[in-house]
Amino acid sequence: MNQIINNAHKQNASINKPFNLRLSWNLIGLMPAYLVMFFLMIIPLGIIFYVSMMTSDPYGGYEAIFSLESYQQILFTYDWDDNLNLNFQYLIIIARTLLLASATAIICLLISFPVAYFISRQSNSTKALLLYLITLPFWVSMVIRVYAWVLILSNDGVLESSLTFLGLTSGMDSLLYNNNAMLVGMVYSYIPLMILPIYASIEKLDARLTEAASDLYSTRLSTLTKIILPLCKPGIVAGFILVFVPCLGTVLEPMLLGGGKTMMMGNLIQNQFSIARNWSFGASLAVVLLIIVMLFLMWNARKSSRPIVEGSAV
């Protein structure tokens, strides 16, 4: 439609005097955004691809010699005889990242739907209050929120000393520095991003639909699975993306709750730039992460381009 109007205007350019003026205003308005994004997003991404295909410099940075060694390094190591051996070290980290991000998104979903539904059933003022309470921790520094879990889970931490004090346990294994600790931290960090879109889609739902369903002898459970959940799918999908994608690149939770040993892609990449100073390897890992995210988003876009419910394609 826009194209059509544009064309109609073009034919008309000669009599429409302010045409040129308006066009330059458009340019002036959009130019800063394009400049910023071009120089600070697109060029750096280009550089990342470039660096990932260069040779790493043991003294930091990279050497401008083409090599796919850094990609090879993700899968293989050289043994003493210079033979390539399959190395699962990094594959495990990638797998753990995918697994933890999926688990986080699924747990968030399982908690978020009942909570969002519960909120949508409250009076308007209660709704506003509860939504405020959900977004509030989000404004509190991310580092502090993850730190709170360090405080709770660490050796001699709040949880352990409380349990010991109550005589329930003594000298248990550290709760920190494992997959579960990271999972708890990630769910805690990202769950508001799941609740809000789901809540929005539940709010949009016509309340008469549930009434119509039960009028037609549907039980609550079948109303939930056959009416409410399918109609909330756009919100659920949006929430899933909003949680899953940042989880793939998350850094804080693996660093603070996972310790040095149980790494995820985020802190593995960061290490290449801070400790290991292997830029090419870091860049290639970043490219792999980017490709994973893009594949996920494209898969999702393809799936949701088919209308989920007639007339309510995402």
Binding site: M1, Q3, I4, I5, N7, A8
Partner: peptide
């Protein structure tokens, strides 16, 4: 006369 694309 006014048309939007092929729509008159």
């Amino acid at each position: 006369s006014k048309s939007y694309g092929s729509y008159q």
